[in-house]
Design a protein around this nucleic acid. Sequence first.
DNA 1: TATTGTTATACTCTATAACTATA
DNA 2: TATAGTTATAGAGTATAACAATA
Lengths: 164, 164
Amino acid sequence: MALSSDTDEDISVQPSDRLLRQFVGYNIKRAYMQLQGDLTQTLAPFGLRIGTFSALAVVLGSEGISQTQLSEVLNIKRSGVVVLVDELENLGAIDRKPVETDRRAYALQVTAQGWHLWQNAERAVQSHEDALFDKLAVEDIRTLRELLVRATRSATRKRQEADE
Amino acid sequence: MALSSDTDEDISVQPSDRLLRQFVGYNIKRAYMQLQGDLTQTLAPFGLRIGTFSALAVVLGSEGISQTQLSEVLNIKRSGVVVLVDELENLGAIDRKPVETDRRAYALQVTAQGWHLWQNAERAVQSHEDALFDKLAVEDIRTLRELLVRATRSATRKRQEADE
DNA sequence: TATTGTTATACTCTATAACTATA
DNA sequence: TATAGTTATAGAGTATAACAATA
């Protein structure tokens, strides 16, 4: 493991959350809480929120996806997707295209405008993350991302086993 | 870096969040969202929520801490701390002890009962995390935790610089 | 004047449940 | 009967703003 040498201990007498740091879950929560504020600010100039940014990315990567499928990928309920899609539609970023073979469903499509929006927002988020994590080596960031993916995968597997 | 060999690509045609995976922030969000449900369930039998569990841990590690200090450590507003402390007090886990030198403030203290509660809850959360992450090598979990701590520290530093 | 704890209120995100129109 | 999308409502969790007591 190639962590750089920044493992200073918390030896202060000041109030701290030392007892909580041992939990992976707590550290994930802390990291997320601190990040989401910044991310929200980064996306605001584009008229996007974290939810709509994510939804746009998924539709972009899976043209013609239905709202139900989108809810499964984003891991939220269908009722929540309606709001996100409404918002993206109002931005002119995506279209609800009727599905000829199933008139209940919509095929979600990213518009040309939506594609440009994504490009700009994606670049902003990326450089924001670069700045935010510039104290971590590039290699460490990659490690972090991969471990998070695998931890999530592991948790998902556990939950699926529990559901059976 | 000692990642084990589980770097399978997402090559399916199924809808996916592939485009989002490149962002550290998104992976942190995913991981947290998947984790918090399980954590809530783990804590429920003890009458604790994530917030009260965290608050109890901080008070335990910093006896006599004030509510304002607690709000700073937990990174939430003072008004939010009132609810957490009320709840822990109702559980008999902590006391609001008057401060003789400043009658506006309380010194928070963990009761004997609160200490036992923490011990049991801490053990439950720990074994839950062990089970949840048993597909990750112990070394990888340590890496993940350290990187999260450092990423958060880095983000905090950035925000403080921005506030100046 | 500033700070501690408190209350009331509002906002964001998400879930649940009931509905409609299709299948 | 079951499913896709929708609507209305409610629940966490947190923020903001105003307040009383105290510094």
